[in-house]
């Protein structure tokens, strides 16, 4: 990541920002709707909710936080941290599920 500070900064247009917002809104509506409609299918609701939340998170990170236009170093670091945290979660939960 030595020289890209001199690279021209990508300016995200208002339109892209608004589009991202629209996407986030639709996903919010979807996740609420799924939750209200599927009251009996507990696990399914949780999994869907988490998948939708992660999609929203990626949208925010890529467009609002400019990750898409930044050096790929940032994406790699975020990926590694997500994996690291997931392994913490996994290893802890394994203990509880196997007791």
């Amino acid at each position: 990541m030595e020289d890209h500070s001199k690279e021209k900064q990508h300016i995200v247009s208002y339109k892209e920002n608004f589009g991202t917002w629209l996407g986030l809104m639709l996903l919010t509506a979807l996740t609420v709707a799924v939750s209200v409609a599927n009251a009996s299918l507990i696990t399914l609701t949780v999994v869907t909710a988490l998948v939708i939340a992660t999609t929203k998170a990626i949208l925010v990170a890529y467009y609002f936080m400019h990750l898409k236009f930044d050096h790929k170093l940032y994406r790699i670091m975020l990926l590694i941290i997500t994996l690291l945290f997931s392994s913490f979660m996994l290893l802890t939960i394994v203990d509880y599920l196997s007791r």
């Binding site: 995200v12 608004f18 917002w21 925010v60 467009y63």
Partner: peptide, 13 residues
């Protein structure tokens, strides 16, 4: 919160 995120992003633009 989502809307406020958009306004911050637009402020940068």
């Amino acid at each position: 919160l989502i809307t406020s995120s958009m306004t911050v992003a637009m402020a940068i633009t």
